[in-house]
Nucleic acid binder design. Structure first.
Lengths: 266, 266
DNA sequence: ATAATTTGTCTCTTACAAAAGACACATGTA
DNA sequence: TACATGTGTCTTTTGTAAGAGACAAATTAT
């Protein structure tokens, strides 16, 4: 039985009313953070670390994790006291795939494409304002250029990003692109206006090629998949060595555009 | 549906006092119900219907859905005002697969098996006390026997169920199996003791065959996948016509056991 | 051994989310 | 024209979940 601390809550020090109010967070938000955190770590995490990682109180984290484990969204990882994603999430994910023609066919097409061309191929989409690699297939080069599925990269770094933003107003684009996003991995800084101009060009030509943006050795070729006339729902892209010949590049772009078009609706 | 919160403050027992108090639900629970509901409907649902389906107040449902859509766990389905699973869930699901060797290899092996034998093949697991088809591959028969991924079926109806319960105490088994579960689709009622005996047999022989349980036309062959000596983590199973010859059945069981063993750890 | 962490569970309080319900605006149909 | 039925956004009220903190037990370090 708790003695003393009865009115402990008297922490709002000072007369000044500094409303420190360490904002209490909604359980659902905490859960969303937990999922996102696990997604970035890509490995099972101890509950204590998890609490630190999402900076939630330990007690809260324990309760939430227990509930999520009971629900099957998370699972205790075999070895000890770590948690990671659970079967339920896998099942829901498969439901999503099943209900989503585009994704289903897109995955297939990406696999075909990378088998046929030997290059790394990817299906990309906007995911709540962020560029996301939804599916990727490695290609057969000795030094393969790979990127993990689910990876999130700033829009301006990619060819696909330029196509995905084709339908948006300038204001919306500014919203989605932070200052940091405009700084390329090598430190160069992209001008927002240039980026927006790129988007317009991409929209007009119906494809996009970027060279040496994410890294110095690769070129990125992308073509749009439409869900309705003018609405870019996804892109397919090929990642090729930067010294790929003009001719070869043109050939690949043509192939890519064809495949992307075949996925488009109407 | 597990109704995790079980306790639900059964305080109404008081004297007169009918404490109707339609227990206010935690947001997280509402979300879990929403996900589960979408999983069972397997299609996009209007928000109003959703509210009815999980029997939550409309206003609450609207807010939750909005939050989930913002988070990318749900998406508004293209056509109108319906929601369904979102890309995030797919990504998390893929993370699960990646972090789970067994599932990854199991899917592969199931696909191989159904291609080689021409029969429907499945990978099954316990999912918070319920039997779940985690992956299935259709087979090539004209009248294919198919079952949806993620489908949940009472444990006593299946061969896999008998193997999955091999490691459990009687008490634990009684917990997982409800009275209803013991009633087969055709109305016959299984004795709990017989079922438990079946489990022991399955454990001893290292495989299980059931005939005409879920339907009158099929036989189900299953073999265990171990995650540690004695611990059944999953099963692989084949669904074949009930009139498959003894010889052929034996042959398939041998194949199945081999494949399942190859997935087992240590 | 003894201290210093970390882990998992429990209790108590109050800030805040869930619910109720009112509103405005669409639809459809007698 | 009324009259239900569905949708989406508000505001207000109040039951309760999130959080702080105290513990015991289990690890690890000294």
């Amino acid at each position: 039985m708790q003695d003393g601390n009865a009115l402990a809550a008297r922490l709002d020090i000072g007369p000044g009313e500094d409303r420190i109010s360490v904002s209490r967070e909604k359980g659902l938000n905490r859960v969303l953070h937990i999922l996102e955190f696990l997604h970035t770590t890509q490995r099972a995490v101890g509950i204590g670390d998890l609490a630190k990682g999402v900076n939630a109180p330990r007690s809260t984290t324990y309760t939430l994790v227990r509930e999520l484990v009971d629900a099957g969204l998370l699972e205790m990882a075999g070895d000890g006291n770590r948690v990671y994603f659970g079967k339920k999430l896998y099942l829901y994910g498969m439901d999503y795939v099943r209900g989503n023609d585009l994704l289903r066919r897109g995955r297939q097409e990406v696999d075909n494409l990378s088998r046929e061309t030997g290059e790394t191929s990817e299906l990309c989409m906007l995911q709540s304002g962020r560029y996301t690699i939804v599916h990727s297939s490695p290609g057969t080069r000795p030094f393969r250029i790979s990127s993990a599925t689910g990876l999130q990269i700033p829009l301006p770094w990619t060819a696909s990003g330029r196509l995905l933003l084709a339908g948006f107003e300038r204001a919306a684009i500014e919203d989605m692109v932070s200052e940091d996003d405009l700084v390329l991995p090598d430190g160069r800084r992209l001008r927002l206006d240039d980026f927006i101009a790129d988007i317009a060009t991409a929209k007009a030509t119906g494809h996009c090629i970027t060279s040496g943006l994410v890294d110095a050795y690769t070129k990125c070729l992308a073509a749009p998949v439409f869900s309705a006339p003018g609405k870019v729902e996804a892109t397919m892209c090929l990642v090729v060595p930067i010294d790929t010949s003009e001719a070869k590049t043109g050939e690949l772009i043509a192939l890519l555009r064809g495949r992307a078009a075949s996925l488009s609706i109407s």
